[in-house]
Design a protein around this nucleic acid. Structure first.
Lengths: 225, 225
DNA sequence: CGACAAATTGATGGCTGTCAAGACGTGTGG
DNA sequence: CCACACGTCTTGACAGCCATCAATTTGTCG
C-alpha cells in the first residue's frame, strides 16, 4: 500500500463493525451518515411497496458497497438488511465529498461503482420483463453462483446462500409457491439444488446462457478501500 | 454563467449535432467515444435479449444524459436510439476523465446522475416484479407525464409522446395486445388517453398513487453543462 | 392502388398466482 | 419431557391474468 493511500485511510478513519442478522443497515427514504463495505456475511437490498409487497433488488455479498445512493443523493432509494451476522467496514458520509475533492481518481471509481450497479439493475429489469419464470430462476441462481465463485465462496461445488425461498421469490417477481416448485424441478433434473443454505449449480450450458454472464462480472468488484 | 464554467465549456469544446429518427446513438456492448446531452427530441434506452425480445429501460427526454456508462465502464450496457429527430450536445469521452480531475464537484454531479438512473431502474424493477399490468401502466404513464410537466412539454393538458405502443409494452414487460386493451380501458374511463402521439393524463389520485412519484423527480434533472 | 406499419378487437390457452393443507425443525413454556 | 407456537418448506387443486393467435381497420408512403 502506497504512503498516499495509507494517509487516505487514516484521514477518513475507517472503522470496523459487527452487526447481527436482521439488522437494518440502511432504510429507504432516509439519509445515512454512514456508508459500508461488506467484509463478511450476507444481506438483502430491497424496496417496499405500499401494497405490502417487497422487491428484492440484489443479494448483498462480501465486497459490496452500501449506501452510495444516500451518499450522493439526499436519501436511500432502497433498504439494506443483514440476513446473517455481518462484518462491515464503516465510514462517514463526509468522506465521500472529500474523496471527490482530494482524490479525483477515487471519485471516478465511485461513479464506476454506480454505473455497475445500474447495469445489474438494468439486466434484472430485462429478465423480469422478458423472461419466463424458469429462465429467470436459472439466470438468478447462475449469477449468484458466479459471484460466489469469484469471491472464493464455493467449496466442493457448493456455496453458502443463507436466504429463504421468499427472498428469492421477491427478487424474481414470482410467488413463493411457484418458486418452490421450480426449484424442485431444477433439483430433480440435477441442474441446481439449494437446500440447507447451500447452493449447488451444475455447470450446464443451458443455465449459463440463461444467466447471460458477461465476463466483466466474474471478477470481484474492486473494494473501495 | 461564471467565468469558471465558461472556460470549462470552451476547454471541452462542446458541439451540437442533429440526428434523424431511428439513429442508433449508442450500442449495447460497444464503447463510445462520445457522450450526449439531449437538447431536443425523444428516444429509447433498451436492452436486447438473444431470444429476440427487447426491454425498454426508459424513454429518453430532453435533458437526459446519454453514455455515462460507456464513459465510466468499458462499454454500454444498453442501447439508445432516437425515436424522433433529435438535437444532442456532443462531447468526447476523454472529457469525463479531465472533468473528474479538474472539477471534482462536477465529478460528483456525475456520480449523482448515475445514482439517479440507478434509482429509476430500481423503481421500475419493483413495478415489473410486484405490480399487476394495469398498475404498471398507470405508473408508467403518470411518470412520463410528470417528467413532461417538469420539462414544460405539457400544453392544454397534453404532451407529445412520439412512441408506439410496442415501445411502451416492451417497457412494461407486457404484450402489445394487452397493453393496447389496457390503454383502451384508461381512455374509456377518462383516466388517460394516448393517441396520435399525444398523451393526456387526468390528475387522478389513483393514478398518482400508482405512480409513486417522489417529489425529487418532479424537478428536471440538472443538465450537466 | 398496393405495400406496409400501427392500432384494434375477439377467441383461446397456458403460465403462474392464490388458496389450502401438511410436513419438518426449532425454540419456548408448562 | 412434552405440548405448543412459529417459521420454513412442500405439494395439490383451482382460478385468473395475461400471452398468443388471428383477423380487421386505419393511416401513410411510394
Amino acid at each position: 500500500m502506497s504512503p498516499d493511500e495509507l494517509s487516505f485511510m487514516q484521514r477518513f478513519k475507517v472503522d470496523e463493525r459487527r452487526v447481527s442478522a436482521g439488522t437494518r443497515l440502511l432504510t429507504e427514504g432516509e439519509a445515512s451518515a454512514e456508508l459500508y463495505t461488506v467484509l463478511n456475511g450476507m444481506g438483502l437490498r430491497f424496496k417496499s411497496l405500499e401494497n405490502g409487497s417487497r422487491q428484492v433488488l440484489a443479494f448483498v455479498l462480501p465486497g459490496d458497497f452500501l449506501g452510495l445512493q444516500a451518499g450522493v443523493m439526499a436519501q436511500m432509494m432502497h433498504s439494506v438488511e443483514a440476513r446473517t451476522d455481518m462484518t462491515v467496514c464503516v465510514f462517514r458520509r463526509e468522506a465521500l465529498w472529500q474523496l471527490f475533492a482530494s482524490h479525483p481518481e477515487r471519485g471516478f471509481d465511485l461513479a464506476w461503482l454506480a454505473a455497475v450497479e445500474e447495469h445489474f439493475l438494468g439486466d434484472s429489469l430485462a429478465a423480469l420483463g422478458q423472461m419466463p419464470a424458469m429462465e429467470r430462476l436459472g439466470r438468478g441462481l447462475c449469477r449468484v453462483f458466479a459471484r460466489g465463485e469469484a469471491l472464493g465462496l464455493v467449496r466442493d461445488g457448493r456455496m453458502p446462500l443463507p436466504f429463504i425461498q421468499q427472498d428469492l421469490a421477491d427478487g424474481l417477481g414470482l410467488s413463493l409457491v411457484h418458486t418452490n416448485k421450480l426449484l424442485r424441478q431444477l433439483r430433480q433434473r440435477g441442474i441446481a439444488s439449494w437446500s440447507d443454505g447451500l447452493l449447488h449449480v451444475q455447470d450446464t450450458p443451458g443455465l449459463a446462457e440463461n444467466a447471460q454472464l458477461s465476463p466483466d462480472f466474474r471478477e470481484p468488484l474492486r473494494p473501495l478501500i
